[in-house]
């Protein structure tokens, strides 16, 4: 009785099956609607096409979703301050560079300053959640409301424009490179995070703490520090997304940068098949979730849905996606596959 023989899992049991299916469905709809949907052309030396556009525009959300995934996994709560932190970090960067013909300080220094702001916000959230044991929603509500206010203070409640052309590189293209810069940044964040999670034991720790923090404590994990770190990381991710966002428009409008994006980030995590109760997570799932949300938006625009009606249609599709992934329907799927591939009796291998 050593081990029971191993059976292949049916395909529907893989955790990424549903997220990929959802993305696939959205893309199929596109293909029917817009036959040239997958066409990629080169104009003015850069790549053009719906697909490129989706990848480009989803970059910020992908980065936020990565940070949000870890926060959800470790603490079973969400960080609703990410949108405000986007705005704050963007505002600080723009204010630091100034609105003159040249930068007031080296560009890189301003970027680092913005990242530092994100980090401080993360430290604040993380401290409240892990050490003060404030509920995540409540703890991050503070910056959710205060963050934009601080951003307004930084910009003096004006919409500020940055003049040097190089400021837009981060949000669009670096001259001579055909692929949008945000895609590189997103890929970098995703890959780096993935490497850190899998090449150290941090990934396992985060899941362990999220699943059972008492047991994790007894096996020697410091759950407080681990939860704290995920919030700090999420703050930095928000700052990066904010930088991309202000670079796209070469301006900061503290009222609108990253508005409601926390909801999309949480949704991306959920569409990615991750439980919002914490524990096991799939980074790839969240990335796919983020791209799905953007694909949906782009699709609706391509179908000429008016911008003010967009949320309604988006909501309808989201409801459908979430329903497909609901436990009830999953069980139904599982039963279906079990009927198709019945289990064999457990064999003893003495």
């Amino acid at each position: 009785m050593k081990k029971i023989s191993i059976f292949k899992k049916p395909i529907t049991q893989y955790s990424l099956f549903m997220p990929i299916l959802c993305l696939f469905l959205v893309l199929i709809v596109n293909l029917i609607q817009t036959p040239h949907f997958f066409k990629i052309t080169i104009q003015n030396g850069v790549l053009y096409g719906y697909i490129i556009d989706i990848l480009n525009r989803s970059s910020g959300l992908v980065i936020l979703a990565v940070g949000m995934t870890l926060v959800v996994a470790s603490s079973g709560g969400t960080d609703i301050s990410v949108g405000a932190v986007c705005a704050l970090a963007g505002a600080v960067c723009v204010a630091a560079l100034g609105t003159g013909e040249t930068y007031k300080m080296p560009y890189i220094a301003a970027v680092l300053l913005a990242l530092l702001i994100g980090l401080i916000c993360g430290v604040f959230n993380g401290f409240l959640v892990s050490f003060m044991k404030v509920q995540p929603m409540v703890a991050t509500l503070i910056l959710f409301t205060a963050g934009r206010g601080i951003a307004q203070l930084v910009t003096g409640s004006f919409i500020l424009y940055v003049k040097p052309k190089s400021f837009t590189y981060l949000g669009s293209f670096i001259p001579g490179v055909p692929i949008p810069t945000p895609c590189f940044v997103a890929a970098f964040v995703v890959i780096l995070t993935w490497l850190v999670l899998t090449k150290t034991s941090l990934g396992m720790y985060i899941q362990s703490v999220g699943i059972n923090s008492k047991a994790s404590f007894l096996v020697g994990l410091n759950s407080k520090v681990i939860i704290f770190l995920t919030y700090v990381f999420c703050g930095i991710c928000a700052a990066i997304a904010g930088l991309i966002s202000v670079s796209r428009t070469a301006s900061i409008d503290a009222n609108n940068v990253g508005l409601y994006i926390e909801l999309d980030a949480i949704l991306a995590v959920a569409i990615g098949g991750n439980s919002l109760a914490g524990g096991k997570f799939s980074l790839a799932g969240s990335v796919i979730g983020a791209i799905t949300i953007q694909a949906l938006t782009t699709t609706l625009y391509a179908m000429r849905v008016a911008a003010d009606q967009l949320p309604l249609y988006k909501a309808i599709v989201v409801v459908a996606i979430v329903a497909i992934q609901s436990p009830v329907l999953r069980k139904w799927f599982k039963n279906l596959t079990l009927k198709l591939a019945p289990g064999k009796p457990v064999k003893e291998a003495m």
Binding site: S201, L202, Y205, Q207, V219, G220
Partner: peptide, 29 residues
């Protein structure tokens, strides 16, 4: 249930986790 198993982790991870914790975060087995 409350203090022992880490329910969603695999049998392998549940077995090695204390040893891994002792090794430290950066020395992944």
């Amino acid at each position: 249930k409350e203090e022992g198993i880490i329910a969603d982790l695999s049998v392998r991870e549940n077995i090695i986790i204390a040893l891994q914790a002792r090794q430290g975060m950066f020395k992944l087995l």
